[in-house]
């Protein structure tokens, strides 16, 4: 681990009433790497995500995002939309949250809201149709088309997002997050509900996002084949605490991880972990 991580979570704690969902969790996500957050159901993964992306206010701890230019954002202090706008953290949702009544293209245009808003002079210049706004809109459409091409949906650009197939919607949601040009992309179970072929395409897409664009990715995933294939670093959680971390190989062989997943029956657990690799 060299260099400053893009995201460092330090002693993050989240309580709901008397229930402790996440306790003293610390981990880091490396720059231009894919970090996976795994753990059994109810381990608190989505809660961590919601803390990072500002949907929950953490009870304690610090979440730092280190930008390329050395700027640092304290995510626990920013709220909702500012995390996406200023700290450049984009996310997707476990149960897809597209704008179903808008076209695929429109979905990607909405993602470029802040850029376009500035270009339109906060609506006033756009209303009278200044050429600079028209150029900005053209660029936005070009970026959106580019992403549609990447996710293989260019021919569905003018279809309502709600009409797309499930796997297409998943990819469109990732493309939409990428259109905000994030520094860190957070994916909440991107492979959920995908078949083997779609999962493979997803892995490819995520690797190209990391490799070609150099965007750091943090993901929650249950599909071990995806996790093991693409992750550079894995953090394992159970009952709100970190129980292990390391490379896919290290994690796979960690008895604590196996125990967490399948009680104490190590042989069975090992079989599952192996099957995933």
């Amino acid at each position: 681990m060299s260099g400053e991580p893009i995201l460092s979570v330090d002693r993050l704690t989240m309580r709901f009433g008397g229930i402790i969902a996440v306790q003293d969790l610390s981990f880091a996500a490396e720059r231009k790497k894919i970090t996976a957050l795994i753990g059994p159901n109810g381990a608190g993964k989505t809660t961590v995500f919601n803390c990072i992306t500002g949907f929950y206010k953490p009870t304690g701890g610090a979440i730092r995002l280190n930008h390329d230019d050395g700027r640092q954002s304290a995510l626990e202090r920013l709220n909702d939309f500012r995390i996406a706008k200023q700290a450049k953290v984009a996310r997707t949702f476990q149960n897809i949250r597209l704008f179903p009544g808008m076209t695929a293209l429109e979905n990607l245009m909405v993602a470029q809201h802040n850029t376009l808003m500035r270009a339109s002079g906060f609506t006033f210049l756009g209303l009278i149709g200044v050429p600079t706004y028209r150029d900005a809109e053209k660029r936005a459409i070009a970026l959106a088309s580019d992403w549609l091409k990447r996710i293989n949906l260019l021919d569905r650009a003018d279809d309502a997002a709600g009409n797309l197939a499930y796997g297409d919607q998943r990819r469109l949601e990732i493309a939409r997050a990428m259109c905000t040009e994030p520094a860190l992309l957070c994916l909440d179970e991107p492979a959920a509900g995908l078949n083997a072929r779609e999962s493979a395409a997803l892995s490819e897409l995520l690797q190209s996002i990391r490799g070609e664009l150099g965007t750091s990715i943090l993901l929650i995933e249950h599909d071990m084949s995806v996790v093991m294939e693409i992750s550079d670093h894995i953090v394992v959680m159970d009952h709100g605490v970190k129980i292990a971390q390391g490379t896919p190989r290290e994690v796979r062989d960690d008895p604590k991880v196996i125990a967490a997943y399948l009680g104490t029956d190590e042989e069975e657990a090992a079989a599952v972990m192996e099957g995933g690799s």
């Binding site: 939309f81 984009a90 597209l98 808008m102 993602a111 939409r176 997050a177």
Partner: peptide
């Protein structure tokens, strides 16, 4: 219109 469709997603996109 995006707000009408999904407010949470809007916030996640920095709106």
């Amino acid at each position: 219109e995006a707000l009408r469709e999904d407010e949470v997603a809007c916030r996640a996109l920095g709106i």
